[in-house]
Simulated scan of single mutants.
Amino acid sequence: MIKIRHALLATLLPVVLTGCGAAEGASKPGDTEVKVLRYQGGTGSVTFPELAAELGYLGDVKLEWVGNTTSGPQDIQSAATGQTDFGGAFNGAIVKLKAAGAPIRAVIGYYGSDKETFNGYYVPENSPIRTARDLIGKKIGVNTLGAHHEAVIKEYLKRSGLTPEEISQVQLVVIPPVNTEQALRQGQLDAGTLGGVLKDKALERGGLRPLFTDVGLLGPFTAGSIVLREDFMADNPTTTRTFVTAFGRAVEWAQTRPRAEVVARMEAIIAKRGRNESADTVRFWKSTGIAGKAGAISAQDFDRWIGWLERAGEIKPGQVEAADLYTNAFNPYAARSAS
Rank of each mutant, 00 (worst) to 15 (best):
A7H: 06
A7M: 11
P14C: 06
V16L: 14
T18P: 05
G21T: 00
G21D: 12
A22S: 14
G30D: 10
V34H: 10
K35H: 09
G41P: 00
G41M: 04
V46G: 07
V46Q: 02
F48N: 02
A53F: 01
E54S: 13
L55G: 04
D60Y: 01
D60K: 02
V61R: 01
K62N: 07
E64Y: 01
W65L: 15
W65H: 15
T69K: 12
Q74L: 11
Q74K: 13
I76G: 12
S78F: 13
S78V: 03
T81H: 02
G82E: 10
G87F: 10
G88Y: 06
G92W: 02
G92F: 04
L97I: 07
R105C: 15
V107R: 02
I108Y: 06
G109E: 11
E116M: 09
P128S: 13
G137K: 00
K138F: 05
K138A: 10
G141Y: 04
V142I: 14
N143I: 14
G146D: 05
E150Q: 14
V152S: 11
E155I: 10
L157Q: 06
S160N: 12
G161I: 01
E165S: 13
I175M: 15
L184R: 07
G187H: 08
A191M: 14
A191W: 06
V197Y: 12
L203R: 06
G207R: 00
P210S: 15
P210M: 11
L211F: 09
D214A: 07
D214W: 01
T222A: 03
G224I: 00
G224Y: 02
I226Q: 08
E230Y: 00
A234V: 02
P237N: 02
T240M: 03
T242V: 02
A246G: 03
G248Q: 01
G248P: 03
G248E: 01
V251F: 03
A254Q: 04
A260Y: 03
A260N: 12
A264G: 06
E267D: 11
K272C: 08
N276H: 13
E277L: 09
E277N: 10
A279L: 04
V282P: 08
T288Y: 00
A291G: 05
G295W: 02
A296F: 07
S298P: 05
G307W: 01
L309S: 14
E310C: 07
E310M: 05
A312E: 15
L325R: 03
Y326F: 15
A329I: 04
Y333Q: 11
A334D: 08
A335R: 07
S337L: 11
S339R: 13
